[in-house]
């Protein structure tokens, strides 16, 4: 849908990502897409639907069922001068390619004394909420955020879905893009004319003064909904979308804490040794005197993510939990 008057259009996250891939394929012959079911099936989440027909099997490559193999092949292609987009169906299956990602892709630049860059982009779906049970519901972005040598981004908006990919492809070093599967159907408006966005800064998605809700990826809609509900009670919540887990935009983080003095961190990963702990530590290290309340974290319950709907909902972070946590910090 194009709104010519205001030169914006409404587009889904899925469509935005597809467009990003398509434009990348058109602009640069070195770019190709590789992964399980990306070609004939059109992608497990239909992101690459229609691309095989347009670009052919050399550039849209269905791979065998071996993450270690095709991620390794992607690394090889990148070393050989290509610009591969490797799609790992979900972060759950990336565990099979962990050695390739952590021990090869992340390390070659260092181990080669700076001689070999690996300009690889890995896209992975992540997250839970669709009753796909314990083995298919992980949120392991935090694990990857732990590794020097990787850049890790978590586009949560349609704009980031469209414009993070070109920046990632231009990066000479590995970039992992996490797409929360629950976001694919979300809609947003994009200006007709856009530009690639950076992979390092956080964005304030909603300005507020009483409390900061810090989050990333699939939890952003929940944080925004919580902010809406808090506003009805006269509590002004600021929502910070981290956008990148490595590097973390510490300046933005400290700035929002210095402004509201209270913070709730929302992370779909588990709390123990999770990414929320890193955010908490940075706040405690560098902004302790700004805190007017303890740091609060809303994460998944410390259980394997359940299959039955009501149990899955109980395990994942929910809007009412965020609201309750915020209220408690405001106190009074």
């Amino acid at each position: 849908m194009t709104d010519i008057d205001t030169e914006t259009r409404t587009i889904t996250y899925r469509e935005a990502m597809r467009e990003a891939i398509r434009v990348a394929l058109l602009d640069d012959d070195r770019v190709f897409l590789m992964g399980e079911d990306v070609g004939r099936y059109g992608g497990c989440y239909a992101v690459s639907k229609g691309l095989l027909e347009e670009f052919g099997p050399d550039r849209i490559r269905d791979t065998p069922l071996s993450e270690a193999a095709f991620v390794g092949a992607g690394i090889g292609a990148a070393l050989g001068g290509m610009r591969p987009i490797v799609e790992v169906m979900t972060v759950n299956f990336s565990l099979l390619a962990l050695d390739q990602i952590v021990n090869t892709a992340a390390l070659y630049l260092h181990m080669s004394g700076g001689q070999f860059n690996i300009p690889l982009v890995i896209r992975m779906a992540t997250g839970a909420g669709r009753q796909v049970a314990a083995q298919h519901s992980h949120s392991l972005e935090g694990w990857y955020g732990h590794i020097p040598g990787l850049k890790v981004v978590t586009p949560a908006t349609v704009e980031d879905a469209r414009w993070m990919l070109p920046t990632a492809l231009a990066d000479p070093d590995p970039v992992i893009i996490f797409e929360h599967a629950g976001l694919y159907n979300t809609e947003g408006t994009l200006p007709e004319l856009g530009a690639p966005v950076d992979l390092e800064t956080a964005r304030i998605r909603r300005r507020g003064s009483d409390i900061s809700l810090v989050t990333y990826g699939g939890s952003l809609p929940k944080a925004m909904a919580a902010a809406e509900e808090l506003a009805r009670d006269g509590i002004s919540a600021e929502v910070l979308d981290l956008r990148s887990l490595r590097p973390i935009d510490t300046a933005a983080l400290l700035s929002t804490v210095a402004s509201t003095h209270r913070v709730v961190i929302i992370d779909e990963g588990w709390k123990t040794a999770g990414f929320s702990a890193e955010i908490s530590a940075r706040i405690a290290e560098e902004a302790i005197w700004e805190l007017d309340a303890p740091i609060s974290r809303i994460c998944s319950e410390e259980v394997p993510i359940p299959y039955p709907r009501h149990l899955e909902e109980a395990a994942l972070p929910q809007v009412n939990e965020i609201v309750a946590a915020a209220r408690e910090l405001i106190g009074g």
Binding site: W289, E290, L291, D292, A293, P294, L329, I330, G331, G332
Partner: peptide, 24 residues
Amino acid sequence: TPRARSLARSRGIDLASLPATGPQ
């Protein structure tokens, strides 16, 4: 809270003499 401590210190106020309406 840390912020309360910081403010009280800079103003020479004894924390024990203050009401406590914050969280927890």
